[in-house]
């Protein structure tokens, strides 16, 4: 669990982060969103003390981060940045082993961990012996994630981690991250510009502007009731409703007392995809089946109902 209490940081005359209080429960994925210059990255760097706060404090699992030795603190927090920052003179395996080596793990344990992590982020064991410049951008970013997870950090801090890769690769990296998080239960704090990325990954959205927290809520709650016109505009303006569809799945709106003919949809399908299928097929109702095997029907009216 991470608690930010009244955090503030000024750079000269401008206030980058202003009285920011936010609690991120264990296992949560919290996306910090907002316009450029809103203080998102600064907030993230205040957590691992790459920037020291002017006021307020950060609690990591109840411990005051300011009281911990800064180096020990950072080794407990994984850190992934957009430009990856792999060490070009080290092999992939050596890069992943950075923090375990700093922590003085024994050789065999490190080797085992590196192997595990390569598999976890979806790379071949052979990639371990390559140099970063021999990998594609997406592969490099996977190594970046593996490196950050190496010492099983309590928290993973990610600063626009997938901003520099193409949309298709980004999508697969997001799926991989979601999968990894489901398996490891690591708390993740994510800074992103990409509202779709935030909606796809986050369990909590925190909207910042001018260094202040305006609203923190689940994606669905924020989309359903944006606290300000600025948030509404950021979330999609007139198309906000379409984004809202992303936050719920077919199962929740399905009428399981009826059935219909045809290939059934999975109950986990997001509603925007349900609409897309209806449009493609020119129908207003589709059959659904959930994991337990129950069959039902979802209609356009169910989808748009609130």
């Amino acid at each position: 669990m991470i608690e930010l209490e009244h955090l503030s940081r000024r750079f000269g005359a401008t206030s980058a982060v202003d009285d920011l209080s936010l609690t991120i429960p264990r296992g949560d994925i919290c996306a910090l969103i907002g316009p450029s210059g809103a203080g998102k990255s600064t907030a993230l760097r205040l957590i691992n003390r790459l920037i020291e706060p002017d006021g307020g404090r950060v609690l990591i699992g109840g411990e005051d981060a300011a009281r911990l030795p800064v180096v020990a603190l950072r080794r407990r927090l994984g850190y992934v940045i957009q430009s990856v920052g792999l060490f070009p003179h080290w092999t992939v395996a050596r890069n992943i082993a950075t923090v375990p080596r700093l922590l003085g793990w024994e050789r065999r344990r490190i080797a085992r961990r590196v192997e595990e992590l390569l598999a976890l982020v979806g790379l071949e064991p052979a990639h371990g012996g390559r140099y970063p410049h021999q990998l594609s951008g997406g592969q490099q970013q996977r190594v970046g994630v593996a490196r950050a997870l190496a010492a099983e950090p309590e928290v993973l801090l990610m600063d626009e981690p997938f901003g520099a890769v193409d949309p298709l690769t980004r999508r697969s990296l997001q799926d991989a991250l979601k999968d990894i998080q489901a398996r490891t239960g690591t708390t993740i704090v994510l800074v992103t510009h990409d509202i779709d990325e935030a909606l796809r990954l986050a369990t909590t959205l925190a909207f910042l502007t001018g260094g202040r927290l305006v609203q923190a809520a689940t994606p669905h709650a924020m989309l359903a009731a944006p606290a300000s016109p600025e948030i509404a505009a950021f979330l999609g303006g007139p198309r906000l409703g379409l984004r809202l569809l992303q936050t719920a799945t077919a199962g929740a709106r399905t009428d399981f007392s009826r059935t219909a003919a045809g290939e059934p949809l999975d109950a986990d399908t997001p509603l925007d995809e349900v609409v897309a299928r209806m449009v493609a097929a020119g129908v207003t109702a589709l059959p659904v089946r959930d994991r337990a095997g129950r069959a039902g029907v979802i209609t356009l009216a169910d989808v748009v109902a609130r």
Binding site: N48, L50, V70, V71, A72, L73, R74, R75, G78, Y79, I81, S83, V84, G85, L86, F87, P88, H89, T98, V99, L102, G144, R147, A148, L157
Partner: peptide, 27 residues
């Protein structure tokens, strides 16, 4: 020396000396 490598090293909890000897000097 790539600035991102230095930033990443710092973010992962390398001390100044480790950063200098392990990252900056070799590069």
């Amino acid at each position: 020396v790539p600035a991102a490598a230095v930033a990443a090293g710092r973010g992962m909890g390398m001390t100044r000396l480790q950063l200098l000897a392990g990252v900056v000097l070799p590069l």
